[in-house]
C-alpha cells in the first residue's frame, strides 16, 4: 500500500521527504541509542542464564507466587489510583473548563504545582502528614474525632494517596483539554430543547468528555504501574510492587536476567493496555497531541 503510494510521488515530494528524514535523523538517533538499544539489550538479557539461552526467568512467573501477588497488587493499586484520580480530577477539570477569566490558569496552576517539587520531597511530606504522630492523626485526636491514631502510612493507603497526588495532573489536563473542546452551544441547545441540567450533563457533556476520561485514565494507570520511589517510601514494605520486584532482583540477588524478564512482561502489559485504549480513541489523543 504505502509502497505504491511512494511510487507515485513527484520528484519534489520525494526530495521533501528525504529532507524531513534528514532533519529527523538526530532525534531518531537519540531515541534509537537511548531507548531502543537498551530495550533490545533488556530483551536479550531476559533470555540469558548462567549457561546461555534459557526460559527460566519467564518460567518463574508461573512458579513464584511472589511474582503473581506483586503484579496483582500493582494492578489493584493502579486501578484504585485511577478511579480516585478520575473522581477527584473530573470535577476539578469541569470547574476549570467552565470558569472564566483568571480562574482556569489559577485552578490548573494549583493542580500543576506539585510538578515543581521533587517526588522525594513530596513523598516525605506525605510521611510527615500521615505517620502515627503525624499532622493528620494529631489533629483528629486533639479534636476528639478518634482516640487511637489511624494507620495511614506504611500501607496501601499511603501509597495510593501519594501516587494520586503526583499523578492527578495527568488526569486533569487531558480532561480539561477535552472539555474545553465541547462547544457551549451544545449544552445551550440541550437546555433550549427542554433538557434539565442533569439530563444535559449525562447525555451531552459526559459522553463528549469520554475521550478525556479514557486518555487520563490510561495515562494515570500506566504511570502508576511503573511507580517506584513513592510506594517504596510510603508502602513500608507492605506494598510490594512490580518496580520493587525489579529493583530487589538487582540489588539483592544481582539477577539481571530475572529483572529484565519482569520488565519485559510489564512492558508487554502496558502495550496491551494502550492497544485496547486505542481501539476506543486514537492514540494521538491519549498522548495529547491532538
Amino acid at each position: 500500500m504505502t509502497k505504491n503510494v511512494t511510487n507515485f510521488l513527484s520528484p519534489e515530494e520525494r526530495r521533501e521527504r528525504r529532507m524531513i528524514l534528514l532533519l529527523l535523523a538526530p532525534a531518531l538517533a537519540v531515541v534509537g541509542l537511548l531507548l531502543i538499544g537498551p530495550l533490545i539489550w533488556m530483551g536479550w538479557q531476559s533470555f540469558q542464564g548462567p549457561d546461555g539461552f534459557t526460559l527460566d526467568h519467564y518460567a518463574r512467573f508461573l512458579s513464584d507466587t511472589v511474582y503473581l501477588s506483586s503484579f496483582v497488587q500493582t494492578f489493584r493499586i493502579a486501578f484504585v489510583v485511577t478511579i480516585a484520580a478520575l473522581l477527584l480530577g473530573y470535577p476539578i477539570a469541569y470547574v476549570a473548563a467552565k470558569s472564566q477569566g483568571i480562574w482556569p490558569p489559577i485552578i490548573l496552576g494549583m493542580v500543576l504545582l506539585p510538578f515543581w517539587t521533587s517526588v522525594l520531597v513530596r513523598a516525605y511530606a506525605w510521611l510527615i502528614l500521615l505517620q502515627r504522630r503525624g499532622l493528620v492523626n494529631t489533629m483528629l485526636i486533639e479534636t476528639g474525632v478518634i482516640d487511637k491514631p489511624l494507620i495511614l502510612v506504611n500501607n496501601e493507603f499511603g501509597t495510593v494517596m501519594a501516587t494520586l497526588h503526583i499523578l492527578l495532573p495527568f488526569m486533569v489536563l487531558p480532561l480539561y483539554a477535552t472539555m474545553k473542546k465541547i462547544p457551549a452551544e451544545l449544552e445551550m441547545a440541550g437546555a433550549s430543547l427542554g433538557g434539565g441540567g442533569w439530563l444535559v450533563f449525562r447525555s451531552v457533556f459526559l459522553p463528549l468528555s469520554l475521550p478525556g476520561v479514557i486518555a487520563g485514565s490510561v495515562l494515570v494507570f500506566v504511570l502508576t504501574l511503573g511507580f517506584y520511589i513513592t510506594p517504596e517510601l510510603l508502602g513500608g514494605g507492605r506494598t510490594f510492587l512490580v518496580s520493587m520486584l525489579v529493583s530487589r532482583n538487582i540489588e539483592l540477588y544481582n539477577e539481571w536476567g530475572a529483572a529484565s524478564s519482569i520488565s519485559m512482561v510489564l512492558l508487554l502489559l502496558v502495550f496491551l493496555i494502550f492497544r485496547l485504549a486505542s481501539m476506543l480513541i486514537p492514540f494521538e489523543r491519549i498522548m495529547g497531541t491532538r
Binding site: 445551550m188 441547545a189 437546555a191 433550549s192 430543547l193 463528549l208
Partner: peptide, 20 residues
C-alpha cells in the same frame, strides 16, 4: 425562567447538533 422551561425552539448558528 430558566432556558429548559421556556419551550422555545432554537436553531443555533452552527446547528449545535449532538455529534455523538
Amino acid at each position: 425562567t430558566p432556558p429548559h422551561l421556556r419551550g422555545i425552539g432554537i436553531v443555533f448558528q452552527n446547528y449545535a447538533l449532538f455529534p455523538h
